[in-house]
Amino acid sequence: MSATAAAHAASHSVARMPSHTGPANKRIVTGYGFWIFLLSDFVIFASLFAAFAVLVHNTNGGPGPHELFDLKSVAVETGALLLSTYACGLASIAAHRRSAIGFYLAMLVTAIFGAVFLGLEINEFYGFIDKGAGPQRSGFLSAFFTLVGCHGLHVSLGMLWLFTMIAQVFAKGFRDDIQRRILCFSLFWHALDIIWVGIFTAVYLYGVYL
């Protein structure tokens, strides 16, 4: 590797030739930095998962996972978020091709499925609180609302970011810095679906079947 780099350095002027170990492309550096942020977010969620796993049996005589969770609704939520992530991937392809129409359409589909997910989740939370199973009822419910609510909050903020990106592409076009923001947004949105995989397994499926 160093032999090729040396040969290249000899054949080109050193100032113009980016060294193999030199600064990487801005897109790679930005993606790496955002990836570090996402991993720190995963660590935050790991603590919430740990708190939930520890507190799941502490129902204090209140309703437990069996009585509360509706797996059909959770399955629809999961499907909506998965399709939303897929549409977000299509949006980054459209952005890469600099197709504004494709980008707006894919982002709108992403937003619609995201909204379906959020609507079902808010409906679920509302139903729990209506039954007197709010976050203050038991340790299990506190941990549940903190973990799933934190994910829902991330999705809500992601929706805000989603519409910001639509507006930025509309106002500024596919500039390099906008492309990097789209990259970060898509990383964020895909990461939320990874966390949801953990939630539907560790919270809902484990809760109902174990």
């Binding site: 790679i28 993606g31 790496y32 990836w35 991993l39 995963f42 660590v43 790991a46 708190a51 796993a53």
Partner: peptide
């Protein structure tokens, strides 16, 4: 160009495993 990302992911996975596994 993904070596850094993979290493960061491996470290993140270690921390996540330690927090969840250790707490439980």
């Amino acid at each position: 160009d993904n070596v850094n990302n993979v290493l960061a992911l491996a470290f993140g996975a270690l921390i996540v495993f330690l927090i969840i596994g250790g707490s439980v």
